[in-house]
């Protein structure tokens, strides 16, 4: 038997997205936010810790409108979301891919969650 080959990334560009938070919009106007674990030539994406978001339906809007006091003339309806965990998003249903900007993350220069925590706890102890 062959020993398993050590992993070498076939694409540095895509490798940069691995473990990043992506926002993936699908053809039915839902979007999913989760961390990318794996992708291939057909842009099938495996996301972990994914949350599904959907735009409220017309019905929800009506209900919210009934409940609001109507003073502002505007109605605020929250997007429905739910945690769905590990998912595969097939490439052919994807209409848009966005990446969460690293700058928005605290401790981004360290690039590692462990270091980030370490730094935070050090700050706390000072």
């Amino acid at each position: 038997m062959n020993a398993p080959q050590p992993y070498t990334s076939p694409s540095p560009v895509l490798q940069a997205f691995i473990n990043k938070s992506l926002r993936v919009t699908t053809t039915d106007a839902r979007f999913f936010i989760g961390e990318l674990k794996c992708t291939d030539r057909d842009r099938n994406l495996i996301l972990v810790n994914t949350t599904e978001y959907r735009y409220p339906s017309a019905n929800d809007g009506l209900n919210a409108a009934k409940e609001s006091d109507g003073s502002s003339g505007k109605v605020r309806v929250d997007m429905a979301n739910r945690f769905i965990g590990l998912v595969v998003v097939p490439g052919n249903v994807i209409t848009k891919i966005e990446v969460q900007e690293a700058a928005a993350r605290r401790g981004w220069r360290f690039g590692s969650g462990a270091l980030e925590t370490l730094k935070m706890s050090m700050m706390a102890s000072v």
């Binding site: 694409s11 895509l14 291939d40 495996i46 848009k96 966005e98």
Partner: peptide
Amino acid sequence: MTTFRDVTKEFLEASGKLNVGQLVQDP
């Protein structure tokens, strides 16, 4: 506040360069 940057195009280009069966993944 989190912001998202649209990367659809670059993602598309990069994945088009992969061969069939090749995977980009977290090791």
